[in-house]
Design a protein around this nucleic acid. Sequence first.
RNA 1: GGUCGGAUGGCCGAGUGGCUAGGCUCAGCUCUGCAAAAGCUGCUACAGCGGUUCGAAUCCGCUUUCGACCUCCA
Length: 497
Amino acid sequence: MSDLHLYNSYTRQKEKFEPSVPGHVGLYVCGPTVSGESHLGHARPYITFDVVYRYLTHLGYKVRYVRNITDAGHFEEEGREAEDKVAKKAQLERLEPMELVQKYTNLYHWGMHMFNNVNPSIEPTATGHIVEQINMIQDIIAKGYAYEVNGSVYFDVKKYAEKYPYGKLSGRVLDDLLETTRELDGQEEKRNKVDFALWKNAPPEHIMRWTSPWGEGFPGWHIECSAMSSKYLGTTFDIHGGGMDLLFPHHESEIAQSTIAHGHAPVRYWMHNNMITIDGRKMGKSYNNVIKLTELFSGNHPMLEQAYHPMVIRFYILQTHYRSTLDFSNESLQASERAFRRLWEAYEVLHKLQHPGNAEAGDPTLDAQVKTWCTECKEFMDDDFNTAKVIANLFELAPIVNSIKGGQIAQTALSAETFKLLQETFKVYLEDVLGMQALQVQQSDKLDKVLMLLIEMRKEARTRKDFATSDQIRNKLAEAGVLLKDEKDGSVSYTIE
RNA sequence: GGUCGGAUGGCCGAGUGGCUAGGCUCAGCUCUGCAAAAGCUGCUACAGCGGUUCGAAUCCGCUUUCGACCUCCA
């Protein structure tokens, strides 16, 4: 079906992708914790895996894409803060926990929409799957790999590691973890400090709580993903994605839980995107250097020189391979904005071009080159989703499109077949696979008519050589954010900033 | 401290041992009443030092340096 190869974090090498059920793909991506607003760093995995989903779909796979929402506040595993994040903030803001969850869920969905991310097939919530999580925990206890203490349940990592390769995904060595000198509170209940919570007893002040066989409490941090992914994708599914910072302990724990519960490893291909950095540092809550999406889109942040359109952010992210770090700066975002504008305008030009229909290429060398650039796009995507290279090729093609329009290249230079391929390539990769869309929404007919009137008046002034008037129209429109372009053929087009 | 990953031209970034990625910026030119847009041309870099090789940005070693994870984190 395809030649797709992807880098599997588990084996640390590129592997040929073969789904366990031919023609179908199960894709699970770690979604947000809706206790706060999404920031630029969060945008990366969602855009990265949106492209993964789009490309798999493009290849003809039937993909079930599951992306969870963590709406049950979790303790830190060692309970250092011993506070439920959601519950705490709810008190500060005097909101019901679920009200807060709803607010940030809505905001998150808005952000996803702005980025033109496709909705997942299923978007399960942690609070909606408490029963599944409890069942899974009971199963793990029954199999002897978890123990209850004071209403909390912990996973016995040391015992697990005796039979299974604990730490393989994240490159941890159990003995090293056990030797770590770091002392954390709330460890006394555990048999070993490496153990992690499956279920936590809820102290009286804790707002979010559910009845369980071990008393009132709430699920541990890692169990929801295991419970929900197996429910909707089966106990073995194809791709699990998330940020690199989730490798440990989150994904390592998921593997351990699921392996005990189901008797085998849950995931066939693990994919992890790298971080977005700012001044060379990971953008994250702990560094206090986040730029929220609302700030990014509005420009309302001390570090921002301007507002950035969601499509500019998307383009900027896709210009870099997903496993490389990507450094934020105004300069690079502005470069992305200019670049994307140019590319998208070429795409619009390509839309309008008509090919004369010659079957033979007038310029066989160019024809062959264009064909190569077009077909390479698939090879690049097949090579671990190399969107950067795809974009580079589209930029190779853009001047050709513009030159056909501008007359520097003859209309007949390309064969009809190649021209069609060129149009399809832009459509498929820029729109369908990379998920890009226009920066500006469609203009209303009324505005268009008004502008056409002004353009017509300017044209008349120019024929009279009344350049004072024509320039005035152009300059005033420019001040209003409407840029006029005199085309080679005498027509005039406009773009609205 | 442990584990892992980076260091590429003015900036951002891709790179599968040999064949200039690409973008942005900048300069010149073409087109244009002027501009903008577009097109063309120019700008050959791979942290340092060794090694392997006919040939290294790419492989190996060391050094310098930055970062990620080890704790909630995309």
